[in-house]
């Protein structure tokens, strides 16, 4: 056996060390920022903090949550995610189902319609025409400006479509013989059978719409910004001067620890759904992307 040879065992040991170091490197920056957010202002400013908080306190967090704009943005984000994910999944499934029947004459002109969608992945109008369109449609400062343009992700639709194709034809035929129409077949058979895939895609869409910040920045007024947009402006241009900071607070607060807290709050929802995401997505991606 090759793995009993001495050079290979040496390689194996080194390999384990390299892999461990690299993966720790993926996490360390996040831990450092987390430590900063819990540390006292003095410790942060004098660079004493590495991976463990020094002068532990929660002032950065209580201060962030005391900000009305912050909570409002959080609500905007939740609303946007819920609306965006439900609408997006509905349109994605409704589009993927008929297209999954394009082979074998199940849907005449299916290939052409599929290319109609795929073409938009290859070529696009770009920023300015999109911006002018939203203006012309009078969607400026409306939640629909954030939800509608990306509602149908062609990439996710193709993943869904390829998954639907793996469902045995017999299931559909049996249901059609029983007198069910396509809508019933979709909702009673296809959707229940593909729940793991649907969950995967829904999680992807959730993460994507939680993370989206640029559309909020260009289309929405400040009061209606989602949290990602607010964080983007706070992190890149932080400002303590606008609000009065009391004497006792200033000992624990610096711009840096405050910013660290905001970074961590922004990352938290993703970290919370990550375990679920991770369980599903490997299977989901491989099923959809690597078509046999």
């Amino acid at each position: 056996m090759y793995y009993k040879s001495r050079p290979y065992r040496l390689f194996y040991a080194i390999n384990i060390v390299i892999l461990s170091l690299v993966s720790i490197l993926c996490l360390i920056p996040l831990i450092h920022v987390l430590a900063l957010s819990f540390s006292s202002g003095l410790a942060v400013e004098t660079n004493q903090v590495s991976l463990w908080p020094i002068g532990f306190n929660l002032d950065s967090y209580s201060r962030t949550f005391a900000d009305g704009a912050f909570l409002e943005a959080l609500t905007n984000s939740v609303f946007r995610v819920v609306l965006g994910v439900s609408l997006g999944m509905l349109v994605t499934i409704l589009t993927a189902y008929p297209l999954s029947k394009m082979d074998g004459g199940g849907l005449k002109g299916g290939k052409l319609i599929a290319w109609y969608f795929v073409f938009t992945m290859l070529f696009n109008g770009g920023l300015i025409p999109n911006y002018i369109l939203i203006q012309k449609l009078h969607l400026m400062d409306s939640i629909w400006a954030l939800v509608l343009p990306g509602a149908l992700s062609i990439y996710n639709m193709i993943l869904m479509l390829n998954f639907f194709r793996t469902i045995p034809k017999e299931l559909e035929e049996a249901s059609l013989i029983d007198g069910a129409g396509h809508l019933t077949t979709l909702f009673r058979i296809y959707i229940p059978v593909s729940l793991p895939s649907i969950a995967t895609i829904a999680l992807f869409v959730t993460v994507g719409s939680w993370n989206a910040w640029f559309d909020g920045l260009i289309y929405m007024h400040k009061e209606n910004w989602p949290l990602s947009t607010l964080l983007q402006t706070m992190i890149s241009a932080p400002d303590l001067s606008q609000k009065s900071v009391s004497e006792s607070e200033i000992a624990n607060l610096t711009e840096r620890s405050l910013r660290a807290a905001k970074i961590f709050i922004g990352a938290l929802p993703i970290l919370l759904v990550y375990p679920f995401l991770q369980r599903f997505f490997v299977k989901g991606i491989v099923v959809g992307a690597v078509k046999g």
Partner: peptide, 28 residues
Amino acid sequence: GRKGILYAMLLPGILLTFIFHYLPMIGL
């Protein structure tokens, strides 16, 4: 018809894609 419903299902996606992807191309 049974086939007709398949095309009806495609309609929302086709419309959204037309408005938010093809109209901007005209805007070029």
